[in-house]
Design a protein around this nucleic acid. Sequence first.
DNA 1: CATTCATTTAGATAATTAGCTAATTATCTA
DNA 2: TAGATAATTAGCTAATTATCTAAATGAATG
Lengths: 100, 100
Amino acid sequence: MNKVFKALSDPTRRRVLQLLRDRPMSAGELAEHFSVSKPTMSAHFAVLREADLVDASKNGKSVIYRLKLSVLEDALLAFTGAIGLELKPDAAPNTEKETS
Amino acid sequence: MNKVFKALSDPTRRRVLQLLRDRPMSAGELAEHFSVSKPTMSAHFAVLREADLVDASKNGKSVIYRLKLSVLEDALLAFTGAIGLELKPDAAPNTEKETS
DNA sequence: CATTCATTTAGATAATTAGCTAATTATCTA
DNA sequence: TAGATAATTAGCTAATTATCTAAATGAATG
């Protein structure tokens, strides 16, 4: 859980997660949304992978990142639960486009 | 919101919030729960104040810290909302002892 | 098979952070 | 008013972080 919160402490990384909410995206595609260098973005992706918040899979020349929503949800619920902030899952509709 | 997430990125500070969930506590009382020096704890309190996650009030020689649950809740809901993680407030039962 | 394209690794740097001890400030009490 | 007590500020260090450019890796394609 610590790694998740560390990962969330940077606005660039939070925004990456937000972008991945709609659909999986390649590293380069994600990087286009930010004004920092590719290697810097690559380092941010590594932090997100390390926290298990995203999944990376290679597709040809690209690396596709996917949001692991459940990991985020679990960490947030664990924390809010411990704090006495009873947010609870809302059988949450997922906005992502269907892959099937 | 960035300051809130920065504040939450340290386990000591998350634990402080957790302790304050039960009741307001003085700086010294809080510090007893940790194995770091008082000045270090004081710095952590400053970060939490800066993020508006706690309220500090002087009472004689002591400084009493209180959790500002709503600020935490707002930040978390703003983020989870943006991410498409529809946690929602649960009319949360507050464990804190009544002050009235 | 040499080139191009996508991404990551290496290596450097500046800024931030968490930690410490010592000193200061503010308040209470004998 | 002279301690004693609670907390913060000052000043320091070591570790981590976000950033960069240049180089390396891996995969597709002429």
